[in-house]
Nucleic acid binder design. Structure first.
Length: 574
DNA sequence: GCCGTTTTCGGCCCGACTGTTTTCAGTCG
């Protein structure tokens, strides 16, 4: 069984959980959690790298001890330290930590006093009324635990960024009508454009908190109130999404926005910088002693620690602070930089609209070009185009292009990559197209080596232009294919072809980390809507968000090129 | 457990809300 970075991260998380329950040094616990994050986000597979005889590179927060444990896990699949911890505490106990309201101290107490080690045992103890008798617990806590267990099955859901956008915008509109409100904005992972969000963090500025919170409670979408204070409240909406609302005075807007945008590791790093300068940074502002020296704007907060403003999408403590300090922050790609879309479906296959309608919508959105890329025959459910129908579509595009002004339709296809890596249409037809978008739509579960080779072989095809939705994942649905994305990216460089960042909110594939890797290898990324209806072009904003998280600039994106620059790039040279 | 031109030891980010307390620990974000 190959060991992935995610497996190593999971082991470190479990160690951190178990250590925490044992009341270990909290900083030691944090070291394991930081290491879990670092290794989980690391772009290269550690096991593969070690198997190649390479050395584990120096990573921040990973010293001699953790590096040795990583090597142990990557090479043996085991971690003796974790096994030792599991012999001291039942491993199932960590699931109790996932119940809201139960932290390490209470879990330890439940285990020591009532020998509770599973959710079932916890539920039984609560029903028997034995939990309320423990010191620090009471009737209310016992009831809350029972309810949390009941909700547990449906809990821990993450929401697609598109869905979260709808809930967020409606609630923001409600809050703006509250008395005395100056600003109301969504912060948190939503503002960082993460592909999914677990909850919504909303920041409101006003002189008085209480009237705002009273107004919040009148929102008719609220299903449950988790906490309700004058400056901080948490509610659950009917959709199940949790919303945390904070009210702060207007002069704290920048500090609060920074604080609640996160990420947590980014904030910790910034506050540490402040500390080194004798400053205290919290959501109210930046303070030297009792004097507030910054905080009205985010810029002022960054300036207080000697940095330029850092775009929210970069705030993951993945090198953005170092880049900011060195003046090397990228100028991230924006929606307005896109000059066209290279992956769109018409009603010839499974799209809703005809070519003329699509072209007019593209022109309305300010595009110079639009590639029509319907499916190939293998995807029969979409009424995919065979050579003959594709040929007719090419003629139709030629006719339309003579007539249309300010927009150019490109002749393309989204051709299936078959199981053996061949393409689902004859070479001579593919050769007549402006571009060939190729994608996997079947056999998602091939073994890693076979799946990778399949895609590499497809890229060897002389007409292959662009690999669509490279991992094939659907968020909350299909897991990503098991492929060696590093090799695919390097192969794209060698073959002079490109990767897509598919902007459909359930795809957002490439992910941010692979965008960074593509950029490092000099492989251009196309940000495409994969539109099937006109409204789908709106999804491009989510693709842009993901690209920004991947540090991409306009230069790193294929479809920011003008039509004249683009066309030669679509021709394969290797 | 990590880290370091002030440090190889002694630090390691900060505040609100809840419930069970009679002044605060635990949890959460």
């Amino acid at each position: 069984m190959p060991i992935h970075n995610a497996d190593i991260a999971a082991i470190f998380e479990e160690i951190a959980d178990l250590l925490e329950i044992q009341d270990a040094n909290p900083f030691r616990v944090r070291a394991y959690r930081n290491a879990a994050r670092t290794i989980g986000e690391y772009g290269r597979e550690v096991a593969g790298l070690l198997a190649n005889g390479e050395k584990l590179p120096k990573l921040p927060g990973i010293g001699a001890d953790l590096a040795a444990k990583i090597e142990e896990i990557a090479t043996t699949g085991r971690c003796r330290f974790l096994e030792q911890l599991r012999s001291q505490l039942p491993p199932t106990i960590t699931q109790l930590l996932h119940i809201p309201g139960l932290g390490p101290k209470r879990v330890k107490m439940l285990y020591d006093s009532l020998q509770v080690q599973t959710l079932d045992q916890l539920a039984r103890a609560a029903q028997a009324g034995r939990i309320r008798e423990l010191p620090g617990f009471g009737e209310k806590t016992e009831r809350a635990i029972l309810e949390a267990i009941r909700a547990h099955a449906s809990q821990e859901r993450r929401y697609s960024i598109a869905l979260a956008t709808q809930y967020a915008e409606a609630l923001i509109a409600h809050l703006r009508r509250a008395p005395g409100v100056k600003q109301a904005v969504v912060a948190g992972s939503y503002r960082r454009a993460k592909e999914t969000v677990g909850d919504l963090d909303i920041l409101v500025t006003a002189r008085q908190g209480r009237p705002v919170m009273e107004h919040l409670m009148t929102y008719d979408e609220i299903a449950d109130v988790l906490s309700h204070g004058d400056t901080r409240s948490s509610v659950v909406l009917r959709s199940g999404i949790q919303v945390d609302v904070r009210v702060l005075p207007p002069e704290s807007y920048g500090a609060a926005l920074h604080y609640f945008t996160g990420s947590k590791p980014h904030n910790i790093a910034i506050r540490k910088l402040g500390q080194e300068r004798g400053l205290k940074i919290n959501e109210y502002g930046v303070f030297r002693g009792d004097e507030r020296i910054a905080g009205e704007t985010e810029e002022s907060v960054f300036a207080a620690v000697g940095l330029p403003w850092i775009p929210p999408e970069l705030r993951e403590d993945r090198g953005e602070i170092e880049a900011a300090r060195a003046g090397r922050l990228p100028k991230l790609v924006e929606l307005k930089d896109l000059r066209g879309d290279l992956h769109v479906h018409s009603k010839a296959s499974d799209g809703r609209h005809g070519l003329r309608e699509l072209a007019e919508e593209a022109r309305r959105r300010g595009f110079q070009y639009l590639a029509i890329t319907d499916h190939s025959p293998r995807l029969a459910v979409t009424h995919g185009l065979d050579a003959k129908r594709l040929s007719r579509q090419m003629d139709e595009i030629d006719r339309l292009n003579e007539e249309l002004e300010d927009i150019r339709l490109l002749k393309g296809i989204e051709v299936d990559i078959l199981e053996d890596g061949s393409l689902d249409l004859p070479d001579d037809v593919l050769g007549r197209l402006d571009l060939v978008v190729a994608a996997v739509h079947s056999h998602f579960n091939l073994p890693r080596e076979q799946q990778t080779t399949r895609i590499l072989r497809a890229m060897d095809h002389p007409h292959f232009t662009l690999l669509a939705h490279p991992s094939g994942r659907e968020i909350g649905g299909r897991p990503p294919m098991d492929v060696d994305m590093e090799r695919i990216i390097r192969h794209a460089r060698e073959r002079g072809c490109y990767l897509e960042l598919n902007a459909q909110p359930e795809r957002l594939d490439l992910t941010d980390l692979y965008c960074q890797m593509a950029k490092a290898e000099g492989v251009l990324v196309a940000i495409d809507s994969d539109a099937h209806t006109l409204l789908d072009f709106d999804h491009l904003r989510f693709g842009i968000g993901q690209a920004r998280r991947g540090w991409l600039t306009a230069k790193d994106v294929l479809n920011t090129r003008t039509i004249n620059t683009l066309l030669p790039l679509l021709k394969r040279t290797m």
